[in-house]
Design a protein around this nucleic acid. Structure first.
Length: 492
RNA sequence: GGCGCAUUGGUGUAGUCGGCUAACACGCUGCCCUCUCAAGGCAGAGACCACGGGUUCGAGUCCCGUAUGCGCUACCA
């Protein structure tokens, strides 16, 4: 039996990182087992579903490198089949028409309302229409009286399934209400739609968030009523906010949206790697894993049961997302093959009008060397166009603290740096080694420490107090620009 | 309220059949390297394994209870 799994998001907004991780785990399992990874858009809530959201989900998956097999499925296309299935269950006596008028529910306090109602309601099986004679039910329906369709859950017994992550799950039927399958307006509801679609798509393993763990019993009941084989289930621990609450866009903003990571300079492989480590751990303990390695090591049995906290600091721009995610991204930026990084840097520079076509041909060697030089201390791709701006443009800003610390603190510096510029003009050839020799010699002649000139020069050439070795910067910037910047009056 | 699930340092996790002086990664501190910042190397702080009982020669690991958190309990998904 070939494995068939699916990712089934509802297109009601951006792609949440928790959903992205579900997608990743499904994808990993499919690739690991040689199975199929399918994508189904659960757009049954037509008011809230948007095409834009669908597009962003597909883009997000693409960005993460999760390719799906077969045709994209839209759940709304199957509404007729869902309805038909519900009617069939009524015919077979496994479901019944409920003519109770629809209750108006305030959308705001549903949670509270639901809990409140559940508290007072004792018998789940007291619906007067549950055992209405078939003739009467048919007659009322034929007369046009509106009705919802509910599953007839047996009053006795229990359902049971073996979750691959959470183990054996049992739930007494008494705890399960006669769930509504079809609304009185004919709209099929979530539990029905999911089950029918999973059956028709031939899903063998349902891998999804733990928030569906208790729903699963209802779905098992439905599989049984429909006479279909029950798939295997694997529920994933949830990803929580630092206060252990739900991670939501409304409360936590853009950190929860996958696109944020793309837009803020994450390397897809790095974020994928980070996401994989949330709730799952590789057997060997090695954490930096390529796509191929993730596939190789992945197993559903390795998934943890406790919810994970996604740690970020809302008021700290430097640590705007999880520390480990940031570290992972930096790790990828400095260690990944340069050839793979270059196009990403190109995209970043282009978006900020720092890209020059020469970097692709005449100056490609220079571009490689420069990126390789500066990548070591960057955390995101964004850093190439911000902190790295001085390498790609003469129009860059000076950091106030750097100017203060490396230039203004010594009044001789302005003159010294001009002198250094003169000296560098005569150096032949102009390399890291020769410029270093020249600078040190110049420092000796002037009777100052080399460090004074080095740090001053770094700030003159890059606007910053930190960065790569000064002599590597001379080399990369070249004699002309180095000299010109040393003489620049801008920071003074 | 009912039912379910979870609970190992700040965070992510490892801890097979009970022997742990509790391991790894991120973060944090210090030192080395050094022209700065990183990276790298080294060292270190930080967990009475939620709490209380029990079983056992011995429990993070098994059992019971409590607490806390999360989830479900909708004609939402």
């Amino acid at each position: 039996m070939t494995v068939r799994v699916r990712f089934a998001p509802s297109p009601t907004g951006y792609l949440h990182i928790g959903a992205a991780r579900s997608a990743l785990f499904n994808w990993l399992y499919a690739r690991k087992t040689g199975g199929k990874f399918l994508l189904r858009i659960e757009d049954t809530d037509l008011q809230r579903s948007t095409e834009e959201s669908t597009r962003s989900i597909i883009e997000g998956l693409e960005w993460l490198g999760l390719d799906y097999d077969e045709e994209l499925v839209f759940q709304s296309d199957h509404a007729p089949q869902h309805r038909e299935a519900a009617y069939r269950l009524v015919e077979e006596g496994k479901a019944y028409r409920d003519f109770t008028p629809k209750e108006q529910r305030d959308d705001k306090d549903v949670k509270q309302d639901v809990a409140e109602r559940a508290r007072t309601q004792v018998d789940q099986r007291n619906n007067p229409f549950r055992n209405l004679p078939k003739e009467e039910s048919d007659a009322r329906a034929a007369a046009g009286e509106p009705f919802a369709i509910r599953l007839k859950v047996p009053p006795e017994g229990q359902t049971r399934f073996d979750d691959i992550v959470y183990g054996t799950q049992e739930r007494s039927h008494a705890e399960i209400e006669d769930l509504v399958l079809l609304r009185s307006d004919g709209h099929p509801l979530y539990n029905l739609s999911v089950v029918i679609d999973d059956i028709s798509m031939g899903i063998t393993h349902v891998i999804r968030g733990q928030d569906h763990l208790t729903n699963t019993h209802k779905q098992v009941l439905l599989y049984e009523a429909l006479g279909a084989p029950v798939p295997r289930f694997a529920h994933l621990p949830l990803i929580l906010a630092p206060n252990k609450g739900k991670l939501s866009k409304r409360k936590h903003g853009e950190v929860v949206s996958l696109t944020t990571y793309r837009d803020r300079g994450f390397v897809p492989a790095a974020f994928r790697n980070f996401l994989a480590l949330l709730g799952w751990s590789p057997p060997e303990g090695k954490e930096v894993l390529s796509k191929e390695e993730l596939v190789e090591y992945f197993s559903l049995e390795g998934i943890n049961r406790a919810n994970a906290i996604f740690n970020f600091h809302e008021n700290d721009p430097r640590r705007w997302t999880d520390d480990k995610a940031l570290w992972m991204n930096a790790e990828y930026i400095r260690t990944m093959p340069l050839e793979e990084l270059l196009p990403m840097v190109k995209t970043e520079l282009r978006a900020n009008k720092l890209w020059r076509e020469e970097y692709d041909d005449d100056d490609s060697e220079w571009f490689r060397k420069t990126v390789d030089l500066i990548r070591e201390r960057y955390f995101t791709l964004k850093d190439f166009s911000t902190q790295g701006r001085a390498y790609f443009s003469d129009d860059f800003d000076f950091d106030d603290a750097a100017v203060q610390k490396n230039l203004r603190k010594d009044p001789r510096l302005r003159e010294l740096l001009n002198g250094l510029a003169d000296k560098l003009e005569t150096v032949e050839p102009f390399t890291a080694e020769t410029s270093e020799a020249a600078l040190r010699a110049f420092a000796d002649e002037a009777g100052v420490k080399a460090g004074l000139l080095i740090n001053g020069a770094r700030t003159m050439l890059t606007g910053q107090a930190v960065g790569p070795s000064m002599f590597e910067i001379f080399d990369v910037l070249g004699r002309e620009r180095s000299v010109q910047r040393l003489r620049s009056g801008i920071p003074w």
